[in-house]
Design a protein around this nucleic acid. Structure first.
Lengths: 346, 346
DNA sequence: CGGTGCCGGTAGAGCGCTCTCCCGGGTCCC
DNA sequence: GGGACCCGGGAGAGCGCTCTACCGGCACCG
């Protein structure tokens, strides 16, 4: 701002009332005479007054901002950082998370501060940021299993909510989807379609999401007489899905149905199948997981297990709100039900 | 924070010096006796002191934060907002922008606040946010031609830097790529490969980027004897590229080289070509623009005109810094050179 | 040996806001 | 009619920090 911004004092003088009264109408606390209220509003309009947030934060001890932390695992080097950001954003899943969070935050005029925590230094920064009171809490989306950030946050007793249950238990609230049910849904759909030789490209087994989607798939299949199911572990990326599918095909050329633990890998699997001369879904049916934009951005559109990501993200924001305002104190987990979306691939 | 955070006062008492001295060592101004300096540092460590940013901002009149505004055009309804966020993030291009910005901001421990400005109300919010001093300036990425936000920002004389030259001139700094040169690069490559019947899927002609990429392509071709080049206008999306390519093919079935004004449309074009029984690059060569992740996320990997997006984004952040600190006052435009990246598609 | 810097520190004002405390005046009820 | 009680408003104390004065002491110089 070039010229000095008007202060409460200026508005008060303009309206001929005290600073306190102006503050009251701005914040809508206590009863103020409607006539005076109107007077003040006009003065605000004339002066173009906007409350200084730093001053307000100083006394309310609240920033009205939350950190949206995208967290990695290791001690990525400084140079790799740019790549990290790009990679995260490349995941179509992340856009839905942001959409859900913003959807909840915006009506409360809270805005997310974007932070990356892929190295020890970056994690320290997040902690400091919150410690300084620049944000009231953190919404954390981890991309790896052994992310140390949640534990650090909990230890510092900073308000935080996680997307997905962490691999090691941490006393923090989180939202998640019922992965087992998702795996089961995929299994049942494949079977219902008449698949005789199902297999799966699992997620990283270090991640609860990886383990449980697999477990749900396996259990449902076992219950229907398929004791041993071929599994190839992937890393939730397109290429890992491609490689895993190729490996599966090498060992079990007669597979006729595949459950990939996310859409990106499902896409990779489709490509591997095509490369090996299999048609999807005629020869091999493919079911994905997530219902990300990757599911419908090319053909065949994926049959997939939908995570209600936007709803989950909004719930994260809601939980964080409660933790910040002290309405809720102990860690809570909210689990959403997955849903099968049938399209072309299975 | 549960318990009261330590203040400067506390540290001063602990170290046995005055508040001002502690402030000096924290901010590194003026000479402080090394012995005392060490004393203070220890006190800081013992107390776990972290300067309260609200208090600091109050006196320095600086937020040490910038708004990263993703701006749309129209008056999108509230419900469409979530879709807007998801759509923006789905564009692989955006991840690179964020990476570049964060790369510059982070070493200065400035963090971007994510804001969407796709409706009049949302634009108002951005203005208020900056007016309240919650952010020192704005980095604006517009997705549409007639985005009103830049003009509003300029009018309020708020520090802001744009990605890409706005359709209507606005007294704001911006970074851009030399679109014409990019179009020329594509034309020359196609010709060098032996294409005889080049065509193009242009971007929206309401956008400078759309116009100029087309102009560069056309001019270079004209100079080499191709007076009339078939053009189909697209909307920078996958589907619009597909449709435009189909239209092109219907009118000119003998095309043997296509320049698509971005990678997403190039991908769409590839699909249209495949649908019509053409092989890429054997029958038709395809050149994209951007070098986004879309260029290499499936085969054939796209030959494309690379925008140095990360560098451009970092430059935006640098320019904004200068505007905020008053080092630079008048609007500046920094134009980057595009570069041809040859891969499989042409 | 008294002035003149400068160096290293303290004192204290004030950034713009919220919020508690206080106070005058009207209402209500006994 | 007088005391209890609200209700609408003002005064003023801070929130934690920065930063401008200011000040004692010491080296240096004429």
């Amino acid at each position: 701002m070039s010229r000095q911004a008007p202060t409460l004092e200026d508005v008060a003088r303009e309206a001929g009332v005290s600073r306190a009264t102006v503050s009251r109408v701005v914040n809508g606390v206590r009863n103020v005479d409607p006539a005076i209220q109107e007077l003040v509003r006009q003065a605000i309009r004339r002066t173009g007054y906007a409350p200084n947030r730093a001053a307000r934060s100083l006394v309310t001890r609240r920033a009205e901002a939350v950190a949206l932390v995208v967290s990695g695992a290791g001690d990525t080097s400084e140079e790799a950082q740019a790549g990290f950001a790009a990679r995260v954003f490349a995941d179509p899943f992340f856009g839905r998370v942001v959409a859900g969070i913003v959807g909840h935050l915006r009506p409360r005029s809270v805005h997310p501060v974007l932070m990356f925590a892929e190295s020890a230094a970056a994690r320290e920064e997040v902690l400091t940021y919150l410690g300084q009171g620049r944000a009231d809490g953190a919404l954390v989306v981890s991309s790896h299993a052994d992310d140390p950030l949640p534990a650090l946050l909990a230890e510092a007793s900073l308000p935080a909510v996680l997307f997905a249950r962490p691999a090691r238990p941490v006393p923090l609230s989180h939202v998640d989807v019922a992965h087992r049910d998702g795996g089961r849904l995929a299994a049942e759909h494949l079977l219902a379609r008449g698949c005789r030789r199902p297999a799966t490209v699992s997620g990283p087994l270090a991640l609860p999401a990886g383990q449980e989607r697999l477990a749900g798939f396996r259990d449902a299949l076992a219950r229907r007489g398929h004791a041993r199911v071929p599994v190839a572990e992937g890393g939730f990326t397109h290429d890992s899905g491609l490689a895993a599918m190729a490996a599966l095909l090498a060992e079990h050329p007669d597979v006729d149905g595949v459950f990939a633990a996310n859409d990106l890998m499902a896409r990779g699997a489709c490509q591997a199948l095509r490369d090996h001369g299999r048609r999807v879904p005629e020869d091999v049916a493919v079911v994905g997981f997530d219902d990300s934009t990757a599911a419908v951005d090319r053909h065949p559109h994926l049959t997939t297990v939908r995570q209600p990501v936007e709803d989950m993200a909004a719930e994260m924001a809601r939980l964080l709100d409660e933790h910040i305002h002290g309405t809720r104190t102990d860690p809570t987990s909210v689990v959403f039900a997955p849903e099968l979306v049938v399209r072309e691939s299975a």
